[in-house]
Nucleic acid binder design. Structure first.
Lengths: 203, 203
DNA sequence: CACTAAAGCGGAGGTGCCTCCGTTTATTTA
DNA sequence: TAAATAAACGGAGGCACCTCCGCTTTAGTG
């Protein structure tokens, strides 16, 4: 029994995610792009018709690609997590390890900032769809672990620290009350963390 | 400094829940009544306009009394919990203590049955509004504790059992997968529990 | 009672959701 | 390149949400 023949791209193996037609793919991408902006600006309740319009497609097209609002939110969310993780690699390439770590944590704060408004809806989504939760939180903590290990290996931060501890500390940011100065506080927390991490580097 | 004077009813002390006008109270009651049926029949997504219509009021009236769907759901939910607890007293008056306990547990199953469909929305509501959760779960377990203690005191069930253990056992019903035979299974579970409780009564 | 202020009523109307299906377009085949 | 066909498009239409405000009813007062 020969392997299923595959033309060029179809690399995934589950059933057969069959490639989209070119125009469909284009529209889908635009929709996700526009939706990301809209959700960031107006929250998860942003008007879907508005999103479709701004993406230059009919409402029907939006619904064909994303049968429910949750589907769309999920895809946007995954994309953003992906971006966050990608940034980790990029920063690691362009900066000294400790700086990369610090910059990434700052970016993490930005990311959380846009999510706080959506807290309730997102929480529902993340408890309902536990795969989504485990996928994304795994990706994020993996990215951070990479940065920390690199910084430790380069002697820029102390070596006796565990990534999950730092993750936990950042977790505090998410659950902090959203006072108007939340943003500054979080920035300071990151700096504080970095000081702690740098202290005693290389003995 | 004299106590705040209070006329007849105003027994609560927070601010001043000022009594509703007679017609308003009537409409409000009807709305809750009708909403309870509608939610039971069609789930929490039942049409509010339909509810208003069936209650014989305009949609504006519904929204004045319950500014969001959640408000209405919450009130209905509280009312049902209240009914469940009230039933405990009533059953205790009309039946031998062990029979009262069994009947009440059966009724509890009925109650859960109507809630299972709404699981996700209710879960959101109960996590968002934690007061609601603690209020109601306290009331329910209190009612059960009363029945159990009475039955134990009457020598109808063993005396060495803790109400919270039984509550916990019933909790299993809620989280059980909803197969088509869920209802029967739950009924059997209650019977089983009762057998266990009766065994060894009065030594 | 008659009168009045405050409380309450209700539904028209503007908006968003989502489905359905006739039309358009990309891709394949000849 | 042209025809055939499967895939995708898009927006009209029907329904529900929720707000707003002019009209009605109640509960006091003389």
């Amino acid at each position: 029994m020969p392997d299923r023949e595959m033309t060029a791209e179809a690399t995934r193996d589950p059933p057969a995610p069959k490639p989209l037609r070119a125009d469909a793919q284009r529209n889908r991408d635009r929709l996700v792009e526009v939706a990301a902006q809209a959700f960031a600006a107006d929250g998860v309740d942003a008007s879907l018709e508005e999103i479709a319009k701004r993406a230059g497609v009919g409402i029907g097209t939006l619904y064909r690609h994303f049968p429910t609002r949750e589907h769309l939110v999920e895809v946007v969310y995954r994309r953003e997590v992906e971006g966050l993780c990608h940034a980790a690699d990029e920063l690691a390439r362009e900066h000294p390890a400790d700086v990369a770590l610090e910059l990434w944590m700052q970016r993490f704060v930005d990311y959380i900032a846009t999510k706080r408004g959506l807290a309730t809806s997102l929480r529902l989504l993340l408890t309902t769809n536990s795969t989504l939760f485990s996928d994304t939180s795994g990706r994020v903590s993996g990215a951070m672990r990479g940065l920390i290990e690199a910084a430790a290996a380069a002697g820029k931060i102390r070596a006796d620290v565990d990534a999950s501890d730092v993750m936990h500390a950042l977790g505090g940011i998410y659950s902090a009350p959203n006072t108007p100065d939340w943003r500054e506080r979080s920035g300071r927390l990151v700096k504080l963390l970095m000081d702690g991490l740098r202290f005693g580097a290389k003995g």
